[in-house]
Amino acid sequence: MSLESTMQPINKDDDVVLAVKDLFLEFDNFDSHVTALHGLNFTIRRGEILGLVGESGCGKSLTSLSSIKLLPKNAKITGGEIQLAGTSITHLPEKAMKRLRGNTISMIFQEPMTALNPLIPVGKQIEESLILHKKISRAKRRQRVIELLQSVGIPEPEARYHQFPYELSGGMRQRIMIAMALACDPKLIIADEPTTALDVTIQSQILDLIKDIRERYQTSILIITHDLGVVADVADKVAVMYAGHIVEIATVHELYDHPSHPYTKGLLNSIPDLTTDYEGELDSIKGSVPDLSALPAGCPFQDRCKNVSEKCRVQNPQLAPTGHADHFVACWHPIGDETIGK
């Protein structure tokens, strides 16, 4: 099994903001040793929004934390490479990494309630990135924070500057988080379930804001979610993760129109569709996610897959082109093309 041959072609051009190449990540617990990421490959270009979807525990958050090098202490990158704006950060010392965080790459978290420091006025929290990364005067910083607050749609920014997180609503707080992530005009923003904790109406506002930011600043965004609706709304490309593998990656329309991996198909079928009459229950994927510390040989999805064959039990399929443009799938029996892999 050659890993080289399975790698997606990585473009050397300057347009690639994040390139993850054959990334392996291992977890060391007291009694177990778990490989949580199995050779991930993907790229994000300038101004592109990539959605990373999958169930909890599939490794999507670990992927995002690897990209900003904020992994838990017991997690270790054991293979592959991560390039951020052309620089390899895989083995970058912490001191250099600190200069990139909040500057070239920044992050939006799931819980705006707890992700902000409760005892620091929100304006000051936004300002902190500027203090750390930009050598500009106090007055200029203030001005920039006010601009940022305006640009994320916060009314009365001067007054908000001095308010504490508890004085703001959840949606407002998420806007503050976004302003904070934007402060130093980063090349890449990682948004880890940015709307999960919010009300539905607020969710769509925040997603609109994220799209708006991409339009205005050409920021690349890696959005992590378990919600395919969110992905359909904002992303250009989608990577579907399952048990530490990327099983399918394609543009949004391609993926929704021609899902190739049985898992993707299952995910899409489990979304209720108001235009269809349902006789019985919604489709669901049978079984549950396999234990990462005891993955079977072969395809990780084998035990839940209807199309499983002998080959699936022996050999793990790697991402391969489906024949459609920009569409890759890791499956021996992809849907719609029964010849691939045989």
């Binding site: 900003i68 904020l70 600190k98 200069r99 990139l100 965080r101 909040g102 500057n103 920044s106 992050m107 978290f109 819980e111 707890t114 992700a115 902000l116 420091n117 409760p118 005892l119 620091i120 902190e128 990135s129 750390l132 990364h133 988080m177 904070m180």
Partner: peptide
């Protein structure tokens, strides 16, 4: 262990600043 600590790290805050500016008051 609080979430805001991770946020601070994601901004590029170092250990010393984290303690003085974020942790101490909390």
């Amino acid at each position: 262990d609080q979430d805001y600590v991770r946020t601070a790290y994601s901004k590029g805050v170092g250990k010393g600043r984290l303690l003085v500016r974020h942790i101490f008051r909390n």
